[in-house]
Computed example of a mutant assay.
Amino acid sequence: MTLRNSPCGGPGGTPAADADTAGDPVPGPCTDRPHRSRAWAELLRLPALFSVPGDALAGTAATGSSPNSRTLLAIGSSLCLYEAGMALNDWADRDVDAVERPHRPLPSGRIRPAAALTAACALTGAGLALAVGAGRPALAVAAPLAATVWAYDLGLKRTPAGPVAMGAARGLDLLLGAAATTGRMREALPSAALLGTHTLAVTTVSRQEAQGGSPLPPLAALATTALLARLVTRPSAGPMRGHRQTTALGRTVPRAARRPEQESGALLTTALAAAYAVTTTRPYFHATLNPSPPLTQRAVGAGIRATIPLQATLAARSRGTATALLIAALAPLGARSAKKVSVT
């Protein structure tokens, strides 16, 4: 990425970014408030927040319910816990980033490590408090979610269990929406497993985004995307319009007709699943051919953005059409903001 001639990396401290990924500005002598605000935006990776509300909304749709006030509390809890993980991640990685990414907010000195740790603690507390407001079932999910986030950042990240822990965190986040809205989670378990699998694949690719590495992780992520797109659009066992079936007595009778809303829901699910696959296929393929840091980072960014159409697909397959469209509307907002601040 090429930076414009400015001590902050561009006019007003904004770097020039390419169409698919945004880089971090080179640290300079800027100390004004906009510069500090940008440093916090980089630390918290604010554009990635657009991928969070869909977790709770997809969980709510999986239970066959519509969002309510408790759903909003669950979304607030998710946002806080997600950002707590971002701040804690950079605090835990500050020594490594000093070597691999010296331009990040902590090693560059734009944010003090103590401030990042304080933010992580405060955001965790806020997330749990919001879960308390959503009810006891929500807190029963938010507490292990917070524990998973902290365990990942402080210990599991660099172990083989790291991607599994991150996938579990996303799955729990989806279950948080179901638990807060209805107090039930069983119906949302399949959706949580699918979303967690996607996150596991993206996290596995992200482990080599700083130095590059093997083509196997992006290739595996590409295969995972294809599998998930197939699973979320798998035809239901329900009857289809215009077909006939033979009974045990040899009589031919018409199958029950599928309702128009079921037909439109199936079309929406297919369209959203296609958007999910398209978002990731090319970046994963390029990273497979050349697993260099820039292409790997681009693949990770695409994987994070693809979370939104996947969440929308999960909502649509649960007949939550309005919820699916609401989630899908977050995708262009996330893509636009990712051009200004990196999500990785």
Rank of each mutant, 00 (worst) to 15 (best):
T323M: 06
R234K: 13
D32F: 10
A74H: 11
T269K: 12
L325T: 04
L43P: 06
T31W: 04
Y276Q: 06
R255V: 05
T269Q: 14
D24L: 12
R101N: 11
T280R: 07
R70P: 01
Q311N: 13
V202T: 13
D18S: 13
G320R: 03
Q245G: 01
G59H: 13
A74L: 07
N89Y: 07
G196H: 05
A275I: 00
H243W: 11
A98M: 09
D32E: 12
A129C: 13
S342I: 01
H35F: 04
E187G: 01
G177Y: 09
A192I: 05
P11K: 00
P254N: 03
P7E: 12
S318L: 03
L200Y: 10
A56K: 00
L88T: 02
A188M: 13
A61M: 09
L228E: 04
L195T: 02
Q311K: 02
L43I: 07
Q211K: 13
P137F: 13
P239R: 12
P107N: 12
C121G: 02
A39Y: 01
A188H: 04
V96F: 08
H243V: 10
S51F: 00
R70N: 14
A256H: 12
A143M: 07
L194K: 00
L326H: 11
T21I: 14
A115C: 02
T204R: 15
V52F: 01
D32C: 15
P332T: 12
G127L: 13
L46Y: 05
A168F: 02
G109P: 08
L156A: 13
A48K: 00
A39P: 01
L289F: 00
P29N: 11
H243R: 14
G12L: 09
R45S: 06
L57T: 02
R282N: 05
R45T: 01
A328W: 10
V26F: 05
A62M: 11
L330A: 15
I308G: 00
T182R: 08
A229C: 06
S69N: 07
A74E: 05
A287F: 09
A221V: 04
G213T: 07
V99S: 12
A165R: 02
R184I: 00
D55V: 05
A188Y: 06
P47N: 06
R136V: 12
D153M: 07
A331E: 15
G303T: 04
S318Y: 00
A221L: 07
P113H: 12
L145Y: 14
P239W: 06
S65F: 02
A237I: 03
Q297W: 04
A84Q: 08
P309W: 01
L49T: 10
G59F: 09
A84H: 09
L272M: 10
L154Q: 06
L289P: 02
S264N: 03
P137C: 12
L289R: 15
I304Q: 05
A335C: 06
T313D: 08
W91L: 07
S77F: 01
A237E: 12
T60G: 09
T269D: 07
G171M: 09
L81Y: 10
T344N: 15
P332C: 09
P332M: 13
S77G: 14
P217C: 11
A275H: 08
L156C: 04
L333S: 04
L268V: 02
G334Q: 09
A306S: 14
L175K: 07
L176V: 03
R45K: 15
L295Y: 03
T224S: 14
L249C: 10
V164I: 09
I111D: 01
L79W: 00
A129L: 15
A48H: 01
R258F: 00
Q311W: 02
T247R: 14
T344A: 14
